[in-house]
């Protein structure tokens, strides 16, 4: 088909954009959502509620925890489908799916080795616990925080960098 050789299809939808293009577009969207919603981009907050809702499904009662008291309780009780942040995170997943499908590059990529399972479990737990301590991930506690002129973002960045060095050593030694 002709469309797959089309110049605009190739530059816009097939070949990767430059990192700087990504940086500029992400910045525009960050500024737009701060202006439109009064809050910048965050990823961890909604994930935290996903965990609580799943925990409730298996019989847990996170609503009694201090963390889910006061401000977070109404969100917890309103549920999955009423949570705006959840829709943003779901959108992120499906936006990436859409981008790979349009480029005709989608396939399910299976786990290749046991070491990848161990890496995934440890990586996930470290990130989850760390993100809760720092009240955010590379988006909320880093990108959005630094851009909001908060000193916490720079402190987080410094220790992220140190953690990444240690993580790289572990990766090369055990997970490669």
């Amino acid at each position: 088909m002709k469309i797959f050789e089309n110049k605009f299809y190739l530059t816009w939808l097939k070949n990767p954009w430059s990192y700087v293009t990504g940086a500029v577009l992400l910045s525009i969207f960050q500024i737009v959502i701060l202006a439109a919603t009064g809050s910048p981009w965050g990823v961890v907050g909604p994930l935290n509620f996903w965990g609580a809702w799943l925990f409730e499904l298996v019989g847990g009662n996170p609503a009694r925890w201090y963390f889910f008291g006061e401000a977070r309780l109404p969100i917890l009780e309103a549920g999955f489908l009423a949570h705006a942040g959840t829709m943003k995170n779901l959108g992120l997943i499906f936006g990436a799916l859409l981008a790979t499908l349009i480029a005709f590059e989608f396939k399910f990529k299976k786990i290749k080795a046991k070491r990848q399972i161990v890496a995934a479990i440890l990586g996930g737990l470290f990130m989850g616990y760390g993100a809760r301590l720092a009240a955010g991930c590379n988006i909320g506690a880093l990108y959005s925080s630094i851009s909001s002129l908060s000193l916490s973002g720079w402190v987080f960045a410094a220790f992220l960098f140190l953690g990444a060095i240690v993580g790289s050593k572990l990766l090369v030694k055990f997970f490669m």
Partner: peptide, 11 residues
């Protein structure tokens, strides 16, 4: 490097 995630292929 099929099935390997970043940064393994580059290393």
């Amino acid at each position: 490097a099929l099935g390997e995630a970043c940064p393994v292929p580059l290393i």
